[in-house]
């Protein structure tokens, strides 16, 4: 892992330029620019959607990869962020600078409140208890008949930014999503490199030792849940704006599952892996869907192939083949 190996001295500028956050943002920005130049409105839609899904996946990757907290309920904070847009909109609040922090706070609050209970458990039990809490909030959302109940509801209008309708076009929204993704990648990366990040990873590896040192992994994990959940809430705010429609379907456990797929597909070791996973899943969905009604078969084959190949010792396989 990059953090544990003393890096050879490199010019700070080069290091910054190679930072996953920068590379990611540049990649998305390039895609957006080319789409824009090609006159493709849909290109912008796709970039916006991919970037916001990547943001949700990155927030989950932070929990899974760094804190060792496998949440199977990450759709809940995502959906809460989306519902914040809907509910705030019904009360006439549509400014992004208000809605974004609100979405972060509401989702973080949910994650902390449920996390306080969930963190009593470990491993698979933690996976399932997070699912339970997400299902509960799903049913709560489905019973909010003032906000469309199970059907959901269209948001009043897309959020404004600085009071201006900068997000009306998908290009504007895509730029915001990409910028927020970059910020999140950069911020989380700093956090991981900090003392706090070290502590999180240490807690994952050896809890007893940490406790013997008088450190409290519980508090660290709770903070991690707040950050991860909050960022998913931000992604939810963006999602509601991209779709202009909010429904409980966003909180369904399938969505939690898809986010886990993105994170694990890209590799849990690095945050950038989650971005890769999100891009891969969106692209597969986008391209395979055009060829066949049975595109899920293709997706399944790709997933199984990736998992099996990643596990196989490729060098041994090659040797075996040559012999």
């Amino acid at each position: 892992m990059a953090q544990s190996v003393p890096t050879p001295r490199r010019a700070a500028g080069v290091r910054l330029a190679l930072h996953p956050a920068v590379v990611g943002v540049l990649g998305f920005a390039a895609a957006l620019a080319i789409a824009h130049a090609g006159g493709s409105v849909y290109g912008a839609t796709l970039v916006a959607r991919t970037a916001l899904l990547a943001l949700a996946a990155v927030s989950l990757s932070f929990l899974i990869g760094q804190a060792g907290l496998v949440s199977f309920g990450h759709a809940a904070p995502l959906g809460i962020g989306a519902y914040v847009v809907l509910i705030a909109g019904e009360y006439g609040v549509t400014e992004m600078l208000v809605v974004l922090p609100l979405g972060f706070a509401a989702a973080a609050l949910f994650s902390v409140a449920t996390g306080a209970v969930a963190l009593r458990t470990r491993g698979v039990y933690f996976i399932m208890i997070t699912l339970a809490f997400a299902q509960m909030i799903y049913y709560v959302a489905a019973s909010l008949s003032a906000f469309g109940g199970d059907d959901g509801m269209a948001i009043a209008a897309r959020s404004t930014l600085f009071g201006l309708r900068l997000l009306k076009s998908d290009t504007g929204l895509a730029m915001l999503a990409v910028a927020l993704l970059g910020l999140a990648l950069f911020g989380l990366d700093r956090l991981i490199a900090s003392r706090y990040g070290l502590m999180l990873r240490a807690g994952r590896a050896n809890e007893a030792k940490l406790q013997a040192l008088g450190l409290d992994p519980y508090r660290h994990r709770l903070i991690a849940l707040a950050i991860g959940g909050g960022l998913a809430g931000v992604a939810g705010v963006l999602l509601a704006n991209q779709v202009e429609y909010v429904s409980p379907a966003t909180m369904n456990w399938h969505v939690s599952g898809e986010l886990i797929v993105m994170v694990v597909l890209g590799g849990t070791g690095r945050l950038a892996g989650a971005v890769l996973g999100a891009v891969a899943v969106t692209l597969l969905d986008e391209t395979l869907g055009h060829f066949t009604e049975h595109w899920k078969l293709g997706l399944g084959l790709v997933i199984v192939a990736v998992v099996l190949l990643r596990g196989a010792d490729l060098k041994a396989l090659l040797r075996g083949g040559a012999a």
Partner: peptide
Amino acid sequence: LGTFGVIL
């Protein structure tokens, strides 16, 4: 992930 793929 692998068993999810099998479901699909």
